[in-house]
C-alpha cells in the first residue's frame, strides 16, 4: 500500500469539503420541495415547464451554431498563423484572450450601437438578426477556449511537414485544411467545443440584453420567483458541465481508428479468479 503524506492529504480533504459541502446542501435542499419527504418533485416540476424546454433548446442550438462558426474561423486561422506567420502568434493569442478581459456587457452594447435601429446593418430590429448577433457573441466568448485547444492540437502534429507531404501529392490549400488539418485537430475542436457549450448554455448577460428567450435569463428568473426549482436546476447544470468535461476527456485522448468509447470488457474477465490450492 502506498502511504499518503499527512499534510497534503489534509489539504486535499479540506478543499474537497469546501467544494462538496455546498453542493450537497444544494442537492439536499432541491429534494425537499414536498414537506417531510425527500423527492424529485422539484425536478419533475422543472421538466414539466414548457419554458424550460424551449429556452434550453434555444440556448443549445445557439451554442452549437456558435461552436461550428468558431471552428470554421479558428482552425484555418490557427493553421495559417502556425504555418506562415509564426511571429504574429503571440498577437493572435492575445486577441483571442480579449473576451476574458472585456466584459460581455461592453461587447453587447457595442453590437447594439453598431447594428441598432438606424445603422447600416440593423440586425437588432429582426429576430433572426438578433439571434445571429447572439451566436456571433457566443463565438467571440468561445475564442479563448477554442483557439487554445486547436492551437495545442496543431502543436501536437507536424503541420508544416504534413502540409508539404499533402502538397507534393497534389492537394490544394483547401483540400489540405479539409482532409488533413481538420481531421487531425478534431479532438481538439471537440475539447474546445464542450467548454464553449458549457459556458454559453447558461450565459446570461448577452442573452438578456439582446432579449433572447435563452436558458440563462430563464435560470435567473426562476431564481427570483421560486425556491426549490433553482436548486434542482443548479444541480442539473452541474451535471451537464461535468458530463461535458468527461466527453472532452474522451475526445481529447482518443486516437484515430479507435472506437468512440473503449470496448466494454467481457464480464467474464471480472469473474473472481479461483485460488489454486
Amino acid at each position: 500500500m502506498k502511504r499518503y503524506p499527512a499534510f497534503p492529504t489534509l489539504i486535499v480533504i479540506a478543499a474537497s469539503l469546501y467544494f462538496l459541502v455546498p453542493l450537497y446542501a444544494t442537492f439536499d435542499f432541491s429534494l425537499r420541495m414536498e414537506r417531510g419527504v425527500l423527492s424529485f418533485a422539484a425536478y419533475r416540476d422543472v421538466f414539466q415547464s414548457d419554458t424550460f424546454i424551449s429556452t434550453l433548446t434555444f440556448s443549445a442550438v445557439a451554442s452549437l451554431v456558435a461552436i461550428l462558426l468558431g471552428a470554421l474561423i479558428i482552425v484555418p486561422t490557427a493553421y495559417w498563423v502556425r504555418l506562415k506567420l509564426p511571429r504574429v502568434r503571440p498577437l493572435v493569442e492575445f486577441l483571442t484572450l480579449l473576451p476574458l478581459i472585456i466584459p460581455p456587457v461592453v461587447l453587447v452594447f457595442g453590437y447594439m450601437r453598431i447594428y441598432g435601429n438606424n445603422s447600416f446593418l440593423p440586425l437588432t430590429t429582426t429576430d433572426p438578426g438578433t439571434n445571429l448577433l447572439l451566436v456571433i457573441g457566443y463565438t467571440v466568448l468561445s475564442l479563448p477556449y477554442m483557439f487554445r485547444a486547436v492551437d495545442n492540437g496543431m502543436a501536437a502534429i507536424d503541420i508544416a511537414t504534413l502540409t508539404e507531404a499533402a502538397e507534393s501529392l497534389g492537394a490544394s490549400r483547401f483540400a489540405i485544411i479539409r482532409r488533413v488539418i481538420f481531421p487531425n485537430v478534431r479532438s481538439a475542436i471537440m475539447a474546445g467545443a464542450f467548454l464553449t457549450f458549457s459556458i454559453s448554455l447558461g450565459e446570461f448577460v448577452m442573452a438578456s440584453l439582446l432579449n433572447r428567450p435563452a436558458f440563462g435569463p430563464y435560470l435567473v428568473q426562476m431564481g427570483q420567483d421560486y425556491a426549490y426549482q433553482p436548486a434542482a436546476l443548479a444541480i442539473m447544470a452541474f451535471v451537464v458541465t461535468w458530463a461535458s468535461m468527461a466527453l472532452m476527456q474522451v475526445f481529447a485522448t482518443r486516437k484515430p481508428g479507435q472506437r468512440f468509447l473503449p470496448r466494454m470488457p467481457r464480464l467474464s474477465t471480472f469473474a473472481p479468479r479461483r485460488v489454486q490450492s
Binding site: T161, E164, S168, G170, S172, V180
Partner: peptide, 18 residues
C-alpha cells in the same frame, strides 16, 4: 508544389495520422 508531380519522402515519415 502541388502542380509539379513530384514524390517526396521525409525523414520524419509524415504519414497522415488520421
Amino acid at each position: 508544389a502541388n502542380k509539379r508531380r513530384i514524390g517526396m519522402v521525409f525523414q520524419a515519415y509524415a504519414l497522415f495520422p488520421n
